[in-house]
Amino acid sequence: MAKNKRDGTFYINPYLGGVLLGLVLFGTYYITGRGLGASGAVKSTVVTAVHAVAPSHADENKYYSKFLSDDVSPMSNWLVFEVLGILAGGFLSGTIYGRLKLKVEHSPKITSKRRLIAALAGGLLFGIGSQFARGCTSGAALSGMAVLSASGIITMMAIFGSAYLFSWIFKKLWI
């Protein structure tokens, strides 16, 4: 049994996983007054990088400059550390359950190259969409649901509804 749990195929019970995730999310609200996030850390990094490379360009752009106020927003920093935590927590779980392996996971019907191109395109769209919605599946949808925010629940329904439709259009990538 113990051996079986470490061969990479074992996942915890999804309801247990959900309760764990829910407690982490609850703890985040209880401690910080805000929810969890992911895309926000990407945004902070892009804003910081563009500002470092082309400061005047970043100051002139109406979007970057929103996040470049003189008093540096502590929350943007917070999300970067939170994402470092996600990497550490994921690595720990991957180590325990024997899933650490450098690989491209894809359906046997497509090549690795095709999978990587689709993943890049998917990430690109997700990056754009998360800026429109002011958050992604974590920051807008999941965290929003916990506080019953209209924005979060509407965004969640739009994400899952659209993903459901488009996954059948891109079915060949998956099954």
Partner: peptide
């Protein structure tokens, strides 16, 4: 913006199979 963003993210989800956190 919330709805349009969600629809674009859904398309990205279907192509990429991940969301940012995952």
């Amino acid at each position: 913006s919330a709805i349009v963003g969600g629809i674009i993210m859904g398309m990205g989800f279907a192509l990429g199979g991940f969301c940012p956190g995952t």
